[in-house]
Simulated assay, not measured.
Amino acid sequence: MQEADMSLDNTLNANGSTREELVPSRYAVRIGEIEVLVISDGVLPLPTKMLGHNVEETERAAWLDHMFLPSDAFDWALNAVVVRSGAQTILIDAGLGLDPELNLPRAGQLVKRLESAGIDLGSVTDVVLTHMHMDHVGGLLVDGVKERLRPDLQIHVAAAEVKFWEAPDFTRVNMPPGFPDALRAAAKRFANEYHNQLRLFDEEQEVAPGVIVSRTGGHTPGHSVVRVASGKDRLMFAGDAVFAVGFEHPGWFNGFEHDPEEAARVRVRLLKELAATGELLVATHMPFPSVGHVAVDGDAFRWVPVFWDY
């Protein structure tokens, strides 16, 4: 595994940087012959109850204190990934976009940061959606974005996910007010606007050489992960299957999980797989750049972030 040079439209060219931003927003990794770029869509501040609504407040507070984090709100990172395999440029998830009703100004940065990285939206051949929550499809709903995308763009998403959002069940989630309505609206609008470009799969689909999307379920019925493999190198983009608290406490339910018990089972299975293989992990809500390994730590797991390669 080499973490370094990336040729995605001169992504690492300093001339393409955005001076007014003082935080890093992209990180390049090479997986064999495949180029991977993690892009930050910003952060989403949420109540700490969202980290584990099935445990006592004192337990959550103890974990936050252990991590030197404030107890009142937790910034959920929002990460998307760009993959170049052969002639294909693949965007995995599309960020939050803009939803003025929710007042989330620190998120929805993906389109701007793709441009800053020198990535033309018209160069994207494929989009893979881990699921259809608004922080994964919203970037495609920003005014003017659809017109800049290729007319032959293919959007890969599990058939079970599209079916679920026809009549979504929110009975087992634990979200702040306003979020269920916003999620419904975003998923419905996305399905209406992009239905002609959807490429549905049941369990697994090869999107490009070395790039495979697989349905896991749990978080949502069609939630999926993306595995990237080339030569001896491997990386998994786990979407919302893995959260920062989920290594030490994989049984904690986060508030966006539509089937919390199944989501926990999926999380444990994936973490065991990652610990056994040693491959890299990237996930939507892990702190940017969210590139690291998983180790077994007694009855739980341990997150081992990579050392940044400058």
Rank of each mutant, 00 (worst) to 15 (best):
G217T: 08
R265F: 00
G278A: 11
W252M: 08
I212N: 05
P250L: 08
S230K: 09
F256E: 09
V225N: 03
V211Y: 02
P221H: 10
V225F: 08
E279W: 12
A276V: 05
R265K: 15
F253V: 02
V268F: 01
E248G: 15
R215S: 01
E279L: 08
L235P: 03
S230M: 09
G231R: 08
A264N: 08
E279A: 13
H223G: 07
D233E: 15
E257I: 05
A229H: 13
L235A: 06
I212F: 05
S214L: 08
S214R: 15
R267A: 05
A244Q: 14
P221Q: 12
E261K: 11
A263S: 14
S230A: 15
G251L: 10
G255H: 08
L274Y: 01
H249P: 02
H258G: 02
A229M: 14
V282C: 13
S230T: 09
G246D: 11
L280C: 06
V245C: 07
A264C: 15
F253A: 10
A238N: 09
G222M: 12
E279T: 11
R234D: 10
A263F: 02
R227Q: 14
E261I: 11
D233K: 03
N254L: 07
E257P: 01
T216L: 14
E273G: 10
R234N: 10
G222A: 12
H249I: 03
N254P: 06
E261Y: 04
F256M: 13
V268D: 03
G246W: 00
G222Q: 09
V213M: 09
V228H: 03
G217N: 08
E262F: 06
H249E: 09
F256L: 13
F243Y: 14
W252T: 07
A244S: 14
T216C: 13
V282Q: 05
L271W: 03
D240G: 04
G231H: 07
F237R: 01
A229P: 00
G231K: 11
R215Q: 08
A229G: 09
G217E: 05
T220A: 13
V228L: 14
A263V: 07
L235Q: 07
A244F: 07
D233Y: 03
T220C: 09
H219Q: 12
D259P: 03
G278R: 10
K232W: 03
V228G: 05
A229Q: 15
F237E: 04
M236Q: 06
D240H: 12
S224M: 10
S230R: 09
K272H: 13
V282S: 15
M236H: 07
V245Q: 15
T216I: 11
P250G: 09
L274Q: 05
V282D: 00
H258M: 15
A238H: 00
T220M: 09
V211C: 06
A275R: 03
D259Y: 07
L270Y: 01
H249W: 01
G231Y: 08
G255I: 09
R227F: 04
H219R: 03
G217D: 05
V226A: 07
H249G: 01
E262A: 11
G246E: 01
R227V: 11
G278N: 11
F243D: 06
E257C: 10
R215W: 00
M236C: 11
G278V: 12
L270H: 04
G222I: 14
R227M: 10
